[in-house]
Amino acid sequence: MTELLSVEDLNFSWGSNEVLKGISFSIKSNEVVAILGVNGAGKSTLIKCINRILKMNSGTVKIQSLDLTSLNLIELSKRMSYVPQTVRTSFSIDVFDVVLLGRRPHINWRVSANDQKIVSETLRFLSLEDFAFRRFDQLSGGERQRVIVAKAIAQGANLLLMDEPTSDLDLKNQISTMKNIVQLISESDDKSALIAIHDINIAARFADRIILLHDGKIVSDGLPSEVLTSENIGMVFGVTSQIISRTDEQPMRIVVGDEIEEK
């Protein structure tokens, strides 16, 4: 597997508040990587620094061996797409056109038949074809989230950056959307996903790798079974937990217990 993304010594602060401290990791092709951490750990900030929405204070980010700063936004968005936590709409358009915006880096003015085909296929892939000609602002929060995931997929980028893509979804759609993402990555040669997520069981089930963020630093990075230990979960989330290992019949599960009393 070739290296798709590399992050070296990334630092970011809001004023004097250091949010990310010396973050380094890399992602290979065909990997689904989850970032876990408590609220305010820097998960969203890390994704926004990689996507150049936020300007890091120092460090190097490379996508397909190209320095992030050497790419213009069009070139960058052909290589990475982004699903924000929420989308604030001023003027709403049809779902088909929202997903078509994912093709924006590939088209100037005229929409090609291929762009239309990709949008249609993506809508079907995420079972959104019934919503295609409904206005985006008339959808529920969960439906909107799936449309934005569809837009990111239609973009055809190598790296999907997703910030809590299942936070507004019901249980069934959480599972189906994550399955869609895993299927997309596993069926392609050169795609990966970096997903900030708050549900450790979803991460344990669908991620190939987990990066655990705590206090702006990576405290653990590896296979779900290596990262999601009771000790790590206690240290990062401040709760007791019981780990049920993966079997042929069921995925790895974490049963969360009580808060750990601070000494």
């Binding site: 150049r52 929405i53 936004l73 924000p84 709409t89 003027f91 915006l101 973009q155």
Partner: peptide
């Protein structure tokens, strides 16, 4: 003005973060 239609779609549809993710500054 017409040339910027796509950029305006991205900007008015989902704000600054959404626009950046589609290649619009």
């Amino acid at each position: 003005a017409l040339k910027w239609s796509w950029d305006l779609n991205a900007l008015s549809m989902g704000g600054d973060e959404f626009a950046i993710s589609t290649g619009v500054d």
